[in-house]
């Protein structure tokens, strides 16, 4: 086979330990534990302390939680995004193939963590909000389930989504000098679900107190949820470059330099270029 002739390459290989699941395991594990604890809190105090907005209990058990989480989320977002930006790679055109492949792995785990957080927010906690609303009377926009769904689970996935995008833009040549249409949709569209809460709450406050889930008032959430499909285009951009890197590092096949990719990222997802270096 021709491949056996390309065994010895001068390209440095990354250690196999660099492709560990550990960081995603810790991040997703922490999110799962956090989500379970939040569910326990909700079971303990939603019905017992969260049915009367004017009560002192409500103030301490739910509004206190709301203010605390908003502050924590703002600090976390600023800290994470700021750190990613401040530690950006300023010499991406000289990035080694091994380092680039390791960074794609890190990006994959970042995106995986984002998608878990998006699942928890847009699927689990959003339908849990339906459980709550169709069971009790609404007397405030900051009802217990909203304190968790809108103001906690949504910002968490936004933090991870934007964080992954900033990571890609600051550490990978493919995303350094151009905006990826599908990636921006993948992160930006679900992120817009959070601002859409403003419309939702105004509508429910002004003219629509009951909770018909299929009401047109909710369709903004629906439209922004469609952006999840853009993960398909995002992976279609990333996979050819990852394949090229693997082929280059392990089989010695030619590859576009980081400088070329930065100059013309579209060429790195060209199916013809990808086919030329396929396994």
């Amino acid at each position: 086979m021709a491949q056996t002739q390309t065994t010895a390459t001068a390209v440095a290989r990354p250690p196999i330990t660099a492709f560990s699941w550990k960081s995603a395991g810790i991040a997703i594990g922490a999110l799962v534990v956090f989500d379970v604890l939040i569910n326990v809190y909700e079971r303990l105090y939603a019905f017992s302390k969260g049915l009367d907005y004017t009560s002192a209990d409500y103030e301490s058990y739910w509004m206190g939680m709301l203010f605390a989480e908003l502050v924590l989320e703002a600090v976390t977002a600023a800290g994470l995004w700021g750190w990613l930006w401040m530690t950006r790679d300023r010499a991406l055109d000289r990035l080694s193939p091994a380092e680039e492949l390791k960074r794609y792995w890190a990006l994959g785990l970042f995106v995986l963590t984002y998608t878990y957080a998006a699942y928890a927010g847009a699927s689990y906690f959003t339908e849990q909000d339906g459980t709550w609303h169709q069971t009790v009377i609404r007397d405030t926009d900051f009802t217990p389930s909203h304190v968790i769904e809108f103001y906690q689970s949504y910002p968490i996935y936004i933090i991870f989504g934007v964080g992954s995008l900033v990571y890609a833009m600051t550490r990978l040549p493919q995303f350094a000098k151009a905006f990826s249409l599908p990636y921006v949709i993948l992160v930006g569209s679900p992120a817009m679900i959070f601002p859409n809460v403003g419309l939702n709450e105004f509508g429910h406050t002004r003219w629509f107190m009951e909770e018909l889930f299929v009401a047109p008032l909710h369709w903004g959430f629906v439209t922004f949820g469609w952006g999840a499909l853009a993960i398909l285009g995002t992976w279609l951009q990333i996979c050819p470059r990852v394949l090229s890197l693997i082929n280059h590092i392990y089989y010695g096949k030619p590859i576009q330099s980081p400088a070329e990719v930065m100059k013309n990222p579209q060429s790195s997802v060209d199916p013809a270029a990808c086919a030329a270096c396929a396994l």
Binding site: Y114, T115, G121, A122, V214, H218, V222, W226, I231
Partner: peptide, 19 residues
Amino acid sequence: STFLVLIAGFHVHQMLVAG
């Protein structure tokens, strides 16, 4: 990741148009 995010997008779509 594709599976998880499609659950998120498809489920929020489904529950608010036919939920």
